[in-house]
Amino acid sequence: MSSVSSSAYPDTKEPAAERTPRPEWPLWEIFIRGQHGLNHRHVGSLHASDAQMAISNARDVYTRRNEGVSIWAVRSADIVASAPSEKGPLFDPADSKVYRHPTFFDIPEEVGHM
């Protein structure tokens, strides 16, 4: 129920563990900063044994065509995500606060640009 402890994905069952005794390389989420001074943006995920490999794999998988100038890699297990069921309580309160948008206020034309 609690959103704070839940990860970004549904729980992965581990039937693979029964067949293959070795653990998978952990999953990492990859964030790339594009060329234009933008924020790092989530582009996808990949498997890597450690942080260094996560960065070099991300280079190969997600920036083959100059898509980025910087990479962040975060272990998927370390991501904390809100639960879809909490979408209402979290985001609905903003609906009634239209005065937070500048267009809420009518300013006479003779005042000029504001």
Binding site: Y9, P10, K13, A16, L46, R64
Partner: peptide, 25 residues
């Protein structure tokens, strides 16, 4: 590129709760 395409898609499938190793198996 084909390897990359495979990886994008395996990642997408993993978000549904299946592991990479299980798909390989």
């Amino acid at each position: 590129d084909e390897a990359g395409h495979g990886l994008y898609l395996y990642c997408a499938a993993e978000t549904l709760g299946i592991s990479r190793d299980e798909m390989f198996e």
